[in-house]
Design a protein around this nucleic acid. Sequence first.
DNA 1: CTCGTATATTACCCATCGGTAATAAGAAGT
DNA 2: ACTTCTTATTACCGATGGGTAATATACGAG
Lengths: 218, 218
Amino acid sequence: MDAQPPSSDTSPWMPFESRRRARDEKREAVLRTAVALFLEQGYHRATLNEVAERLNITKPALYNYFRGKEEILFECWSLGQEQVDGFIAAINAGGGTGLAKLRKLIRAYAEVLATDFGASLVRFDPRDLTETNSRTVRAAKRSIDHTFRNYIADGIADGSIKPCDPKLSAFAIAGSLNWIGHWFQRDGPLSAEVIAENFAVQLTEGLAAKRTRKKKAR
Amino acid sequence: MDAQPPSSDTSPWMPFESRRRARDEKREAVLRTAVALFLEQGYHRATLNEVAERLNITKPALYNYFRGKEEILFECWSLGQEQVDGFIAAINAGGGTGLAKLRKLIRAYAEVLATDFGASLVRFDPRDLTETNSRTVRAAKRSIDHTFRNYIADGIADGSIKPCDPKLSAFAIAGSLNWIGHWFQRDGPLSAEVIAENFAVQLTEGLAAKRTRKKKAR
DNA sequence: CTCGTATATTACCCATCGGTAATAAGAAGT
DNA sequence: ACTTCTTATTACCGATGGGTAATATACGAG
């Protein structure tokens, strides 16, 4: 499409680079198509033939980019996980009370779960993965869980969250959020931002140590 | 096993009855084995051969009790749904504020989701069912959702719950609960009762209009 | 004992689908 | 133009697993 013929003053590596980029773009296109189809039909019902068909290619062409169906599944999951890792790092880097960090986490996680790759974090079954990849997924899930628990524990320590069982509270909050991946639809009446904001408030209202000063007493 | 030879003063229908009961017991045994296996391995990975093997029979024997794999899946789901329908009817029959009914619902729903048939309500994929059965499932899910929303709306109307969006609040609460079906394990450190009680409190604390008088100030 | 019904088994069919081999087509480099 | 590397296609394989047909066995009834 926008691949321009190598001008005279361009590095001789341009074509290589351009080809590599084109390849990466195609790889990504496969993943976008695959994740959408996997979510639509479920991993087992979705066939590689149909993934290929939607891309106007044939099944064996996919094997130029991936080792097989399982690798595609895992890479979809990875793209979602990258997003989560990203914002968790950002929140950790920033400051704030445990409660503030928890709310940031809820908002960011909710918005990721409203995307296709985000939903794949909770809609895909680790048992469809190889043992190695499955271990990676389980470790990541544990890590997210611990992040929730840590922020809650931080909040209890700094007084922003009233004493509670961090484990159970984390389960309750993460459950609410994870479920978004199952019901959210982009073309629905609720935007991801509205949901994220609402959940950030509702899910922490019961935990906050001091009542958030009512914005509008009623 | 305990089928006793028909004594002289027994109704001539006894054998029939006894046989029918034996049959029902076997049917149920199939469902218990199947639901456990489906949850363990996932519907698609679980084979009827393995279900049969666990029952010390062979696959075709299953077809004496069910039309096929899909019917087994649907019946497992139905048994879970029956429980839900049961306690919802009970709560509706009883009285109480919207908040009180909501808490009863949370407790009961949490405990059902901690059972195998209960978990099947949220772990099985309706897309694996025939169109007819799938419609039944979707209708039941809508009904549960509406029950949550109605109790919340009732609570707002009677003043026990402070104004909020019943739709979003219902999603948040139901999400927390549904997730139980994904992580709860019977042999884990948390009992279903503890989880149910904790969730009933935590998930409604943010909604309650008046602070629940602290049982034990600490 | 014999018949009929319910229930189980063995052996088999076949549709589906992930994956592979052989090969053709297209663009960059010489 | 000729070669080479990449990328795509057509045609096929083979395992898996749901479902069926034919048949054997257990058991209550007459």
